[in-house]
Design a protein around this nucleic acid. Sequence first.
RNA 1: GGAAGCGUGGCCGAGUGGUUGAAGGCAACAGUCUUGAAAACUGUCGGGGGUUUACGCCCCUCGUGAGUUCGAAUCUCACCGCUUCCGCCA
Length: 430
Amino acid sequence: MLDIQQLRNDLDNVVARLATRGFAFDSAAFTALEQERKTVQTRTQELQARRNASSKQIGIAKSKGEDVAAIMAEVAGLGEQLKADEERLAAIQWELQKLLLNLPNLPHDSVPVGKSEEENIEVRRVGTPRSFDFEIKDHTDVGTPLGLDFDTGAKLAGARFTLMRGQMAKLHRALAQFMLDTQTEKHGYTECYTPYIVNADTLRGTGQLPKFEEDLFAVKKGGQEGDSEPLYLIPTSEVTLTNTVRDEILALDALPIKLTAHTPCFRSEAGSYGRDTKGMIRQHQFDKVEMVQIAHPGQSYAALEEMVGHAEHILQALELPYRVVSLCTGDMGFGAAKTYDLEVWLPAQDTYREISSISNCEAFQARRLQARFRNEAGKTEWVHTLNGSGLAVGRTLVAILENYQNADGSVSVPAMLQPYMHGLLKLQTA
RNA sequence: GGAAGCGUGGCCGAGUGGUUGAAGGCAACAGUCUUGAAAACUGUCGGGGGUUUACGCCCCUCGUGAGUUCGAAUCUCACCGCUUCCGCCA
């Protein structure tokens, strides 16, 4: 959520910056609404003040045993007008709130301006793609004989669900363990176990609601009926980790808070029909190790760079070639002020594919969350929130299957993962 | 699922219709004292919003929402959350 003060004071600039992300803001409607708000709010508060004063007088008079009929008569007419104004004001505030909740974040000055992913900027490439002296297979063909089972996944739950067996399932688990151990032991994040199902308030806090309900899975309790709000499966543990500071005023020295969790993520992938239908790239359920930082505003961009490094560390440890991309204004997510993507090399696709996305949301989520800290001057101030994958486990598995495949159909286990696989060097058919 | 109870400021805890945003205590912060610290004493001390060049003035907020009333932390209703006991249960 943007700062409504900023909209009031610097509207043209806000409109221009929103436009860079392809968002057309109706400033005329906003201005009209604001003007009415001002009139009605002032009038309402005046009436409230008069009513409060009179009521106080009645109290004083009664305690002295004086006659209160005169004052009572004075207040009598106030009620109706006040009620009408209060209702109108509430309606206007609701409109403004709705408008605000649907505005995306303003891009940081350093973000390249562009319409789509075509205009993202490559920041650096790390690692050299391996050259193969045999006909390579994609992860589906490599993985299927080794325990990756799309047919059974589909039988159990539908398209975009996968079952893993044996060594494949173990490798998947090893990856998550390795990532979690790295982020906690090497990079100082506190490991968390979080709910996988959350309420609507939580999703409003991080910005998935109200605008992106169709991307979520909703669940209802047994016997739940009527129109009470449903619960939702988390699309990422960014949601739960970031919401831990909702409605909090943190001490200055509590910052930064660094949290990590390994959780499944559930996404309905509405609107992506036909994209990545084959294989494990785009699933309704996937595991991810997430990093979240709650940072001091003065430190948040340093934290962003640091987190990119934390995610890169995993790819480097696994010796997977990748590149770092700075997303342009048109490709960034709703709440992000600046985002880096990490893209891993997939030889069968002959391209780099997103495996991590790391964003600084600045105060955008904090305003929704009412997440503040007490600054150096003792004043409350919004925290900055950052989140990033470190990494997406399923896509990392895909990258390993493709990059570590051998001519005989086996897949070598990256050195760093071998301890997690009890020394197993290769995935191969029995 | 059944029964009972409870939600007040950073924390504890008074407060059952009237000059109460709320006693008291703890914590925190500033100052006096001290070589320094502690103790003691003095003061400050929830959050959000409107308006104002500013000082200030005003509004909202006692789990959330609605209601009764000139006036609600206090009365009514609904919802949410927590605790305890019973049942069920990984």
